[in-house]
Design a protein around this nucleic acid. Structure first.
Length: 943
RNA sequence: GCAGGGGUAGCAAAGCCUGGUCAAAUGCGCGGGGCUUAGGACCCCGUUCCUUAGGGAUUCAUGGGUUCGAAUCCCAUCCCCUGCACCA
C-alpha cells in the first residue's frame, strides 16, 4: 500500500464532503479541543500523540452519530518567539544549525524570519499542513491566532470579568532576571536552555560592627549551634544600607552579593570594607546575645548568597573541617543542636572521621554534608528549648518563622526587629543569559496576579472538578493537590506577543493566563472574525457567553444571535486534551477560569492527558539531535502508521515509543491484511464456516464487543493490540487450520473498527469492498459510517476453549517428539479420558482436598466402584489445583475437537497417522498409557 | 522537602486491583528449520537450567511476613523517573 497517495486521496474526498465542518444545531453535539500549538518550530512526532489521541476520539464519537466539533488555533503568546526572532537577526549559529539539521530549513529561509509575525506565519503554516496530512478531523474555519485583534478583545473581556470577581491582585514578585538586558529570563533565554530555579532561603542577621552580617542558610534550625562566622579573606566587601520594612539597616556583603541582591532588596552602598577589617570584628548571636568570632575560610564563595557564612561545626562538615584546618577546634568547641541516632555530640566531626574526609577541599565533604542533612532533618531531635524534641524539619520552619518575626530567643516573644530576611536565590546558579551576563533574582514591583489562592474560588473549582471525568482517572489526585497549593499567579510580563493587560497597557498578558477559556472563543471565532474587532465590545461577550442583554437592545444584530446560538449549542466542552505536563498548570487554570466566568451549566466535562513520545527509547531533545519532524515521518512511514504507533505503544499516561521496527511491524501487518482483502474480493476464495472459521469469528466479535468501551475509556493500547496484532495472529492460525477463507464479514466490521485509528486505510478498504455491504450497515464513506456493534451470537466460548485445547495437545506432542528426538512419527494416538474422571475433577474443584473428595465420591456409583483410582487421580489434580478451577470442555467435546482436527494434525506432524480413542476403547497394549488420560490432557502415544 | 509513578526473562512491555490454569502474554532481538539461485519479506519451531514421554528445579528489585499456595496481599529496605509555577 502506498500510504502517501492514500492520505492525499482520501483527505481530498473528506474535504469536499465537508465532514469535519459541523453546523450548530444538527443533532447531538460533541465538542472537544486539544491544547493549541506554539508555532516556534515545526512539530515533531511527539506533538502527534496528543492530537492523534484527540482525533481518534473525535472520529469515534462521529461514528457514534454525534455532531463533532474539533477546532484548532495557534498560541503565539509570550516571549520565546521574540527571543527566537532576535537570535535569527543576530545570525545565531546554533539556531541556524538546529533549523537546518533537524528540521531541514535552509539558512536562506531562516534568514528571512527576523520578524516575529513572519516566524509565526511560517511555522503555523508548516504545523497546519502537518495536521492536515495526519488526517486530523479539524474544522479549520474557526482558526485564529492569539494576537488577533478579535481575540485580544475577548481576553481583555475575560480579565475584566476576573477583576470584577476580585481575582486580580497586584504586588511584588521575585523572578529570574538578566541585569544587562533588564528583563526576566526563562529557560529559552539562557545559555544551554537552562531553566533558572528560584529558591527561598533565610538570611540570618548577626549584629556586628556598624550594622549586621547577613548569612544565608538552608538550615536555620542549626542556628543555636553557631560558633563563629566565616569570611573569605580574599574577597572584597562593602557596607550597604538596606531598607527593610521602611527602616534602614546596615549590612556587610561581598561586592558580588551587593550587585546581585540589589535587585531584590533596596540597597545603597556606604563604603568599601576590607576583609581584614571584618575579621577584626566580633558578631553577636541573635538568639543568645553571645559573642561570635569571625574567622577566615577559603570555601566561602563571594558570589554565593551574601559572601558571608555562619558556622555550625557540630552539624556542618564544611564548618567543622574549616575549624580543624585552622587548628581552632579546641579554642572553639562545637555546640550540639540536634541528637542524631548513631552519633554523639559532634555528628559532623564524627562523620568526617568515618568517611576519612581530609580537609575542606576534599570532594567527600560534599557527600558528608548531604548524608548528615538528610539524617538530621528526619531523625534528628532538637535539644535546645523552646524547640527541644522537634525534628530537624519541624524546627527549621519554626525557627525561620521566629527569626522573621524577630522573636527568636526572646522568651517574652516581643517582636522587635527582624532577626532574618527571606531572600530568593537561583538554586542552580550560575545561570547565564544568552547575552553572557549572570542571572540574578529580581523583586519585580507592580506585578499583577491572578489570585488562585482565593478560598471561595478554590471551592468552586473543586466542585467543578468533582463533576468532571478525569482521564486517566489516577490524575484526579493531582488536580486536587494542584488546586490546593496554587497561590497568586503572575499573569503579566513586560514583553511578548499576545494581548495587552487591560489595567496597565504597558504589560502583556502571559501565555498561561490567556489560554484558559479560549475553547469558548472557538464556538464563535468564525462569526467574530467576520464581524471584525471594531464591532466587538464587552457587551457582545456578555451577551454571547453570559446571556446578559445589552443596554441598547438594538445592538443585538443577527451576528450576536448567531454567536449566542453557537455558544449555547457547543458549550460545555465535552473533552479537553493535552499532554500530562499541563495538569499542574494549564488544565487546572482552565477549570478555575471556567468557574469564574461561566454559568455552572457551561463548566467543562472531561480532561484527557497523555504521556510523551520517546524516540527509539530515548527522550527527544535538540541536543541529542534525535527529533523526528512529523512531516518527515509521514513521508517515511505513512500517516496511519504514525497515528497507530504513537497512540498504541503505551498506556495513555505512560510515554509511548516511536521506533522503526514498531512502525515496520505495523506496515507489515497492514500489507498482510490488504493481501487477505484482495483474496477475499477475488471471489474465488472458498467460503463456508468450518470450525476454524467459527473460532475466528468468535474471537473477532468478542474483540469488537470490547472495542466501543475501549475507545470510550482511552484503552488504546489493548484496543490497538487486539485490532492489529492479535487479529493478525488469528488470521494466520485460521488460514493454517482451514481450507476456507471466509473473510468478507470480517473486513466490513474490521474496517469500521479500525477507522478512528487508521482512517485512510479504512477508507481505502471500505471503497474496495464496493458500495454494497453484505454485513455492516452501509455508508458512502467509512468516516461517517456507524460504529458497528458485535454479533454476540457468534461468540462461542466453548469453541475458543476447544481450539485452545487443540493447541495444547499439539504442544505436548511436539514436546514429546523433541524429548524423543524424533521428527516424523509413524502414528500419533490420542486417548481421551473416561467420563468418570470429569466427575472426579468437578469434586476436586469443589472441595480442594482429598478427604472431602473421597467422602463425596462414595455417594456416586461411578466413582464409588473405583475408589483407589479416584484417590490417585484426585492427588494428581490437587497438585495443580489451579488448572482444575477453570472451566473445562464439556464431556464429548474434547474428543470431537480432536476427531475433527485429525487431518490437520496429520499434516502438522509430517503425515503421521492420527488416531483418537476413548480411554475405555484402548487396546490392552495401551491400557497402562490410557489410564493416564486426564480431562484436558489426553494420553499421547507416539509410534 | 512535597506530590505522583515505577523496578517482571537479552530489550521493550503485559500480568498485580479480584492469590491457584504464571516458567509468566505480546512485540523486537537472537538461534534453528521451511520457502527462495541467494538475500529480503513471509511461515513454522525454539529462546532460565536439567530431562530419550508431556516431567522436575530455580526465578518476577532486596529482606521478612500472611497463606495449603504469592510476580500478585502485608511490613521494612534499596534504587530509578516526573512535576513543584510565572515558562511555553
Amino acid at each position: 500500500m502506498d500510504f502517501n497517495t492514500l492520505h492525499a486521496k482520501w483527505q481530498k474526498v473528506w474535504e469536499e464532503a465537508g465532514v469535519f465542518e459541523p453546523e450548530a444545531g444538527k443533532g447531538e453535539k460533541f465538542y472537544l479541543t486539544a491544547a493549541f500549538p506554539y508555532p516556534n518550530s515545526p512539530q515533531h512526532i511527539g506533538h502527534a500523540r496528543t492530537y492523534t489521541t484527540t482525533d481518534i476520539y473525535a472520529r469515534y464519537q462521529r461514528m457514534r452519530g454525534k455532531n463533532v466539533l474539533f477546532p484548532m488555533a495557534f498560541h503565539v503568546t509570550g516571549t520565546p518567539i521574540l527571543a527566537m526572532a532576535k537570535r535569527i537577526e543576530a545570525k545565531d549559529k546554533e539556531l541556524f544549525e538546529i533549523f537546518e539539521k533537524i528540521y531541514g530549513i535552509s539558512p536562506e529561509t531562516t534568514r528571512t524570519l527576523t520578524e516575529p509575525r513572519d516566524l509565526v506565519m511560517f511555522f503555523s503554516k508548516e504545523i497546519e499542513a502537518g495536521m492536515v496530512e495526519m488526517g486530523y478531523s479539524i474544522d479549520w474555519r474557526r482558526k485564529f491566532y492569539t494576537f488577533d485583534a478579535v481575540f485580544n478583545k475577548f481576553i481583555q473581556w475575560q480579565f475584566r470579568k476576573l477583576q470584577e470577581a476580585g481575582f486580580i491582585t497586584k504586588g511584588s514578585h521575585p523572578v529570574p532576571w538578566c541585569p544587562r538586558d533588564r528583563q526576566p529570563v526563562g529557560g529559552h533565554d539562557t545559555q544551554g536552555d537552562v531553566d533558572p530555579e528560584l529558591e527561598e532561603v533565610t538570611a540570618v542577621l548577626f549584629e556586628a560592627g556598624e550594622g549586621f552580617i547577613p548569612t544565608i542558610t538552608y538550615r536555620p534550625e542549626t542556628l543555636p549551634g553557631v560558633t563563629n562566622l566565616w569570611v573569605n579573606p580574599d574577597a572584597e566587601y562593602v557596607l550597604a544600607n538596606a531598607t527593610i520594612d521602611k527602616r534602614g539597616k546596615k549590612l556587610y556583603l561581598t561586592k558580588e552579593a551587593f550587585d546581585s541582591l540589589a535587585h531584590q532588596l533596596t540597597l545603597q552602598k556606604i563604603k568599601d570594607v576590607d576583609a581584614g577589617q571584618l575579621l577584626k570584628l566580633e558578631a553577636t548571636h541573635p538568639m543568645g546575645k553571645r559573642p561570635i568570632p569571625i574567622l577566615p575560610a577559603s570555601f566561602v564563595d563571594p558570589a554565593t548568597g551574601t559572601g558571608l557564612v555562619m558556622s555550625v561545626p557540630a552539624h556542618a562538615p564544611f564548618d567543622w573541617l574549616a575549624l580543624r584546618d585552622l587548628g581552632q577546634l579546641n579554642a572553639i568547641p562545637p555546640i550540639q543542636v540536634l541528637d542524631a541516632p548513631g552519633f554523639g555530640s559532634c555528628p559532623a566531626g564524627e562523620l568526617c572521621a568515618r568517611l576519612g574526609v581530609k580537609n575542606q577541599q576534599d570532594p567527600k565533604a560534599e557527600e558528608a554534608t548531604k548524608q548528615l542533612y538528610k539524617l538530621e532533618a528526619h531523625e534528628g531531635k532538637m535539644k535546645a528549648a523552646p524547640y527541644a524534641g522537634m525534628s530537624g524539619i519541624e524546627a527549621k520552619e519554626k525557627i525561620r518563622e521566629d527569626l522573621l518575626a524577630g522573636r527568636a530567643g526572646s522568651p517574652a516573644g516581643s517582636a522587635a526587629h527582624p532577626q532574618a530576611l527571606s531572600v530568593h536565590i537561583l538554586a542552580n546558579a550560575p545561570v547565564f543569559c544568552r547575552c553572557g551576563a549572570a542571572c540574578v533574582v529580581k523583586q519585580v514591583e507592580n506585578q499583577w496576579f491572578i489570585d488562585y489562592g482565593n478560598g471561595k474560588w478554590k471551592e468552586k473549582t473543586r466542585e467543578a472538578l468533582a463533576g468532571m471525568r478525569i482521564m486517566p482517572a489516577g490524575l484526579r489526585h493531582d488536580y486536587e493537590y494542584t488546586i490546593g497549593w496554587l497561590r497568586q499567579k503572575a499573569c503579566t510580563r513586560a514583553s511578548g506577543l499576545g494581548t495587552r493587560f487591560p489595567f496597565d497597557e504597558s504589560q502583556m498578558i502571559e501565555a498561561l493566563s490567556d489560554s484558559t477559556i479560549y475553547m469558548a472563543f472557538y464556538a464563535i471565532a468564525h462569526i467574530a472574525k467576520k464581524m471584525g474587532a471594531g464591532k466587538i465590545d464587552d457587551e457582545f461577550f456578555d451577551f454571547v457567553f453570559l446571556g446578559k442583554e445589552p443596554a441598547d437592545k438594538k445592538k443585538k444584530i443577527p451576528d450576536w444571535l448567531d454567536a449566542r446560538r453557537e455558544f449555547l449549542y457547543w458549550y460545555p466542552l465535552d473533552s479537553r486534551h493535552s499532554a500530562h505536563d499541563l495538569v499542574h498548570n494549564h488544565l487546572t487554570f482552565f477549570i478555575f477560569n471556567h468557574t469564574a466566568i461561566f454559568e455552572k451549566r457551561h463548566w467543562p466535562r472531561q480532561t484527557v492527558s497523555n504521556g510523551f513520545v520517546t524516540m527509539e527509547g530515548r527522550k527527544m531533545s535538540k541536543s541529542m539531535g534525535n527529533i523526528l519532524p512529523l512531516r518527515k515521518a509521514i513521508a517515511q512511514y505513512g500517516t496511519d502508521v504514525i497515528r497507530f504507533v504513537v497512540t498504541s505503544s503505551a498506556e495513555l499516561e505512560a510515554d509511548s515509543d516511536f521506533n522503526r521496527s514498531a512502525a515496520e511491524g505495523v506496515i507489515g501487518r497492514l500489507n498482510m491484511l490488504e493481501n487477505y482483502l484482495e483474496r477475499t474480493m477475488a471471489n474465488n476464495a472458498p467460503t463456508g464456516r468450518d470450525r476454524a472459521a467459527r473460532w475466528f469469528y468468535s474471537r473477532f466479535h468478542s474483540r469488537l464487543r470490547d472495542a466501543a468501551r475501549q475507545y470510550e475509556n482511552f484503552e488504546l493500547r489493548p484496543l490497538a493490540r487486539a485490532l492489529l496484532y492479535d487479529t493478525a495472529n488469528d488470521l494466520q492460525w485460521y488460514s493454517r487450520r482451514s481450507q476456507t477463507l471466509d473473510l468478507r464479514e470480517f473486513f466490513e466490521y474490521w474496517t469500521l473498527m479500525a477507522a478512528p485509528f487508521m482512517p485512510h486505510v479504512a477508507e481505502e478498504f471500505w471503497a474496495r469492498m464496493g458500495n454494497k455491504k453484505e454485513h455492516a450497515k452501509n455508508s458512502p464513506l467509512a468516516v461517517s459510517a456507524h460504529f458497528p456493534s458485535a454479533d454476540e451470537k457468534q461468540i462461542e466460548p466453548s469453541l475458543e476453549m476447544g481450539e485452545r485445547h487443540l493447541q495444547d495437545v499439539m504442544e505436548d506432542v511436539r514436546h514429546i517428539l523433541q524429548l524423543l528426538k524424533r521428527e516424523k512419527p509413524a502414528s500419533v494416538t490420542l486417548i481421551v479420558h473416561s467420563p468418570w474422571k470429569m466427575k472426579a475433577r468437578a469434586l476436586v474443584a469443589k472441595h480442594k482436598n482429598i478427604k472431602s473428595v473421597m467422602e463425596e465420591a462414595k455417594k456416586d456409583a461411578a466413582l464409588a466402584m473405583r475408589q483407589p483410582q479416584v484417590a490417585q487421580l484426585a492427588g494428581k489434580l490437587i497438585k495443580n489445583i489451579g488448572s482444575v478451577t477453570g472451566e473445562a470442555l464439556e464431556a464429548g467435546e474434547e474428543k470431537r475437537v480432536l476427531e475433527e482436527a485429525k487431518e490437520f494434525l496429520s499434516s502438522e506432524f509430517g503425515g503421521a497417522q492420527v488416531v483418537v480413542l476413548d480411554e475405555n476403547d484402548a487396546p490392552p497394549a495401551l491400557a497402562a498409557k490410557a489410564a493416564n488420560a486426564l480431562p484436558g490432557k489426553p494420553s499421547i502415544v507416539i509410534a
